[in-house]
Design a protein around this nucleic acid. Sequence first.
DNA 1: ACATGGGCGTTACCTTATAACAATTCGCTT
DNA 2: AAGCGAATTGTTATAAGGTAACGCCCATGT
Lengths: 163, 163
Amino acid sequence: MSDEAPLAFARHDHSHCAADTLARAEAEAARLGLRLTPVRRRVLEILLEAHRAMGAYEVLDRLAAEGFGNQPPVAYRALEFLVENGLAHRLRRLNAFAACMHPGEDHAPVFLICRVCDAVAEAPGAPVRAALDHAAADLGFAVERVNIEAVGLCPVCARGEAA
Amino acid sequence: MSDEAPLAFARHDHSHCAADTLARAEAEAARLGLRLTPVRRRVLEILLEAHRAMGAYEVLDRLAAEGFGNQPPVAYRALEFLVENGLAHRLRRLNAFAACMHPGEDHAPVFLICRVCDAVAEAPGAPVRAALDHAAADLGFAVERVNIEAVGLCPVCARGEAA
DNA sequence: ACATGGGCGTTACCTTATAACAATTCGCTT
DNA sequence: AAGCGAATTGTTATAAGGTAACGCCCATGT
């Protein structure tokens, strides 16, 4: 796992984007009546601040350093809660987690993972999801949850490779 | 992992489908100039016979029982080879592998995983893939490899739940 | 024959993830 | 405000998944 890969390919004002997303996540949690306990909230903050995909154990290290429990279940439970409630995503290809950048928006995210710099972008995937639902319906299969992860070259690294 | 979940939802003549697929896989391997060694071939057969997603260690157990090496790398290398060359697929959501049912067809598979019976179907995903490529292109991202995995209810289990 | 490279077997180890239980806290009812 | 059930957290222990690295062997071509 690279140490400082940006979450989106575009430049952006990171302090704002993290704070804004946290605020929206909190609003969403309130709306759903979720208990955003200290551990859960802190895990979400950690993911937002890092702004990249993090392994559960990496998150755990930070929690432990801040006085929370230092055993795997502590991290896994908080992460599972966040994923379950749409405040974070799980990237199975990376065995990692990332904060959701659009909490509450009922989006169907598609993840674009750069094989060179490990950056992860959350792309809008409504059309993809629609196509998927259609393909599944043809087989009588009712889709409930989806993971769509693409590995390839991000625009930044593509320029590098072309050289 | 359930013990005997069918790969496709539809009934089918399994002995034929496994043998046919193996034949097609062999033709494809020949066409590509691949070395389908005993271990690799046997792993593919195991996956085809089981006709479901299997964990690497499960495959390894069978290999070991047949006199092949009994250490993880033996299974992982063969599985990686098969995946790399389009003769098998990796299901990240299940930490498992399944034989490709359409070797050489240049398909863009979408995997439908039933959350009740663990059956896995390989659905045609060309339209899904097209939508994905489009979404990625909007961000300047060049897709190379894709995992599309949907969890839900297969038609058989859906009838069961409705009852 | 002999060099070469790929594949295989093995050792050793690392990372990721979960089951199960005890202790605590929360939110609600009485 | 006391008390109760449910949810949450911390902890122990262990399961499950995966890989690096080395040496041997065997096929292949010279």
